[in-house]
Design a binder for these strands. Structure first.
Length: 832
RNA sequence: GCCCGAGUGGCGGAAUGGCAGACGCACCGCACUCAAAAUGCGGCGCCGCAAGGCGUGUGGGUUCGAGUCCCACCUCGGGCACCA
């Protein structure tokens, strides 16, 4: 032991990541190498990781996501681009408030302490960020502009208030956007969501539904298909028709028109009843006096259901007859009007024509209440009235007057023509997307910059009076959830004067959903100190859109949809020339442990700090990258950070072995090794462009192995090709393992930083081989391998292949039917 | 139910329609060592003593040639879902 140890010390050849981190961290801090020049001397590129929420220290998930973004950032820098790679914090939000309540503190204390912790960890983790642009959404200097943008939205009618049934989380005591309700439960805490009718603020995102859908064409191929699919799904465009039905007058009330939305106007003749949403106002307006009590009892029954129960498709259909009839505009038939909870007030017009033969829900309802079923599209299947299964496919129209005999699509078009001509209907497009509910009854968020005045109404706070800052004196228990905003309790804050008339008025006490803050932060990064607006439009035009965005798929329809919406509105305000914020998106996978997401309740969490202490920053980063393709999950139980550390030590030792002087002419070096080096650099660039980071690591390992061999049993450590190879290893490794790469670079006689070394130039002549291995197949099976000149002719290769002994054996003396020659790599012979 | 994505050794994973399993983990062996660790070198899909045969979820198809393309199906993962 002592012998070996002293030898290690004597040669200084032991890899100690602790030393490398201690040496290079301060040097980089001093250098400040990651601030873009922004002087137009190089093409600009913007790479961004979804900014973190400051909940405690960084965890394994951050380590993976930020490793990915940093590879792109560092690669682009090596290619010579002027790279913008900023970092900031999404620092408003509930956990800070809950911590403040528990500790009798102000949310800012917990928030900013955590930010400092995370910032220090990011620095240790060697993220190549431009620290001079750091921002926090909870800084008044930031949320001033969130408020400014809200005011612009308000001016354009894109921010408005309405009374409406909303999603309510009973635990967090706040409303939720549709996007924050997952399977009927609160996205954050999992509590089943209830409905509550409240006056709330909304963004009119539905006005942008078409553009949000259409502009996805630009993202195709650059965003993961699943994210585009999720957004498409969420927006839920469906084409159909609005058809007006006259509801007959009764003794008490006159006749009135009720419009339905249908995607199947071809089935109008098959409508046998009419249904309105039980919880829509319309139900109460239509019901006859003698049936009102029945309706109200039913409505109570519906309200008692949780969202999860109500949405269940297993549940038997329920409903009540309203005592009135609607007239089918096509055939004049009288249809009984029902109220039922399977029709949603939120979707379409809240009323439908029921066609039980061709819609399963209507059929279930018809069977429950003994309503007639009439088939009008013959699909060749059994009559739904008999089978109990609605038919929805292609077919021929029957029992449908002038539509009879037509196919489904023709009939849809014809039916729309008929109702349009009669003025009782029109072609229409309906969306599933709802407006974005943005107000929250919580404290730690951006205050809504509106003053309510008895005389002037809803008055926006003028731009020159922004920001409306949060009161400092609310803390601890005063922030506890109570169903209304804690801000209401801050009387000196709430009571103000009307900006319009100067009279006494009250501030709006709700705060904004934190997704509002994060819907534009990528714009703030281009000019974080700018004071004339949310961002400098010229800087935005220079840097945006983001060239590579990196983050988790959990934001597919939240942050990513909202950011696209904001970007379009800001574009329409004339502030930016582009209307999509993120040109390319990479969804990194999750870090699992033992096949499951790490969680406190499972007790399977892995502490990032401990991993960094044990294996070093570089080994952890390299493991994240090498374990799997970026978009796949990494199971920490299956990977080997110690294996990564071993490889890094092996690569690092190469640098100590190099004996040629810096600047030695590689042209004089060993050609075989040079070929490997240049092939590796060329392949690595291609793989990096395709985000196949794990394969880049594998190729680098091959280069390291080849270099080791060249030193130990080849041309030797003094060969300039060895230096060339090791320098290439250092530059490639600088993307994944910056400390190790920097130290190798120094050992090779270069000053810091390897981050600016530049991507190695590939000599194309070294990518061409003199001889290649030609594969000879008989009927597609490999029978021989031949070393042949790379420029061999087809005829020569054919002859060589046919002369091969194993090939002759496989041919068993039969004649040749086909011989395919792909010189110089392959011959395939098919015998008679 | 609808919409996406994925099925390759013991494991993570490679593979512009052309040598399946690169690279690594684990495992086995060898060298160095009194020994171990570290390091270096080698082996490692399955069946078979071997020759050889079989192999990329299943079944078909296209092709001189299919992990890769097409059709049908199975399984797993994810999203949406009483959305008219």
């Amino acid at each position: 032991m002592s012998t070996q140890h002293s030898e290690t010390e004597a040669t200084g050849s032991s890899y100690r990541f602790q030393d490398l981190e201690a040496t290079w961290g301060p040097v980089w801090e001093e250098l400040g190498v990651f601030t873009p020049k922004d002087d137009g001397t190089a093409e600009r590129r913007y790479v961004l990781d979804m900014f973190p929420y400051p909940s405690g220290d960084l965890h394994m998930g951050h380590a993976e996501a930020f490793a990915m973004g940093d590879v792109v950032s560092r690669y682009w820098r090596q290619l010579g681009y002027d790279v913008l790679h900023p970092i900031g914090w999404d620092s408003f939000g509930l956990p800070a408030e809950n911590a403040a309540i528990k500790r009798n503190a102000h949310p800012s204390e917990w928030t900013y302490a955590n930010i400092e912790t995370q910032a220090a960890s990011f620095k240790r983790y060697a993220i190549s960020a431009d620290w001079s642009r750091r921002l926090h959404t909870s800084d008044p200097g930031y949320y001033r502009w969130t408020q400014w943008l809200f005011t612009r939205f308000h001016e354009k009618g894109l921010a408005y208030r309405k009374d409406h049934p909303v999603n309510w989380c009973p635990k967090d005591q706040t409303v939720l956007a549709n996007e924050q309700v997952v399977a009927g439960a609160c996205e954050r805490c999992g509590t089943p969501v209830t409905k509550k009718s409240l006056n709330q603020w909304y963004f009119r995102i539905t006005e942008y539904a078409d553009r949000l859908l259409d502009d996805m064409d630009q993202l195709k191929g650059h965003w993961p298909e699943r994210v585009l699919a999720m957004q498409r799904n969420w927006i839920g465009r469906s084409e159909g028709a609005h058809v007006d039905f006259a509801v007959e007058a009764t003794d008490e009330s006159p006749s009135r028109a009720v419009t339905v939305f249908t995607t199947r106007p071809d089935t109008l003749y098959g409508a046998t009843f009419f249904v309105v949403a039980a919880d829509a106002d319309l139900a109460g307006e239509l019901v006859t006096a003698d049936r009102r009590a029945g309706l109200e009892a039913y409505q109570e029954q519906v309200k008692a259901l949780s969202e999860i129960e109500r949405q269940s498709t297993e549940r038997e259909k329920t409903g009540v007859f309203l005592g009135r009839y609607a007239i089918n505009p096509l055939n004049g038939e009288r249809l009984p009007v029902w109220a039922a909870d399977y029709v949603l007030a939120e979707y379409g017009t809240g009323a439908i024509m029921a066609v039980p033969a061709h819609d399963q829900r209507d059929l279930d309802f018809a069977k429950t209440f003994g309503l007639p079923v009439r088939m009008v599209v013959d699909t060749g299947e059994e009559d739904p009235a008999v089978s109990g299964t609605a038919t929805v496919g292609e077919g021929t129209l029957v029992n449908s007057g002038e539509l009879s005999g037509l196919g489904k699509d023709e009939a849809i078009a014809r039916a729309i023509e008929i109702v349009e001509a009669a003025g009782t209907g029109r072609h229409t497009v309906n969306f599933r997307l709802r407006d974005w509910l943005l107000s929250r009854q919580r404290f730690w968020g951006t205050p809504i910059p509106i003053v309510h005045c008895a005389d002037c109404g809803e008055v926006p706070v003028p731009d020159d009076q922004l920001p409306v800052t949060l009161p400092e004196n609310l803390r601890g228990e005063a922030l506890a959830p109570q169903g209304t905003s804690p801000l209401a309790a801050a009387e000196d804050w709430v009571n103000t004067t009307c900006p319009s008339c100067g009279g006494a008025a009250k501030r709006d006490t709700d705060t904004m959903d934190t997704f509002v803050d994060s819907s534009w932060y990528f714009l703030r990064f281009v000019s974080p100190e700018y004071t004339e607006g949310p961002f400098d439009p010229a800087a935005a035009a220079r840097w945006m859109p983001v060239g590579q965005y990196v983050g988790g798929v959990e934001h597919a329809i939240l942050h990513l949809l909202y950011s696209r919406f904001f970007t379009k509105v800001i574009h329409d305000l004339g502030l930016i020339p582009f209307s999509e914020p993120f040109s390319a998106l990479l969804n990194q996978g999750q870090v699992l442990n033992g096949g499951k997401a790490m969680s406190k309740s499972l007790g399977n969490g892995v502490d990032l700090g401990e991993q960094l202490d044990k294996y070093g920053v570089d080994a952890v980063r390299l493991t994240m990258i090498f374990a799997s393709p970026p978009e796949d999950d990494v199971d920490w139980a299956d990977v080997s950070p110690s294996g990564s550390a071993k490889f890094l030590a092996r690569a690092w030792r190469l640098a100590g072995d190099v004996t040629s002087a810096p600047g030695a002419d590689p042209a004089a070096g060993d050609v075989a090794l040079r070929r490997v080096t240049h092939r590796t650099v060329a392949d690595a660039a291609e793989l990096l462009d395709a985000s196949k980071f794990n394969v880049v690591v594998a190729k680098t390992m091959e280069l390291v192995n080849a270099t080791r061999k060249a030193i130990d049993s080849g041309p030797g450590a003094g060969d300039p090709a060895v230096r060339e190879a090791v320098e290439a290893v250092a530059v490639i490794l600088s993307l994944f393992a910056p400390y190790t790469a920097e130290d190798m670079w120094a050992q090779l006689g270069h000053g810091p930083s390897v981050a600016n070394a530049g991507w190695p130039t590939v000599d194309p002549s070294l990518l061409v081989q003199d001889t290649v291995v030609a594969v000879v197949q008989v009927r597609g099976k490999v029978r021989d391998r031949l070393d042949v000149p790379a420029d061999i002719t087809e005829d020569a290769l054919r002859e060589l292949a046919l002369a091969s002994e194993p090939v002759q054996r496989a041919l068993e003396g039969r004649g040749l039917r086909t011989v395919i020659v792909r010189a110089p790599k392959l011959v395939n012979i098919v015998p008679e």
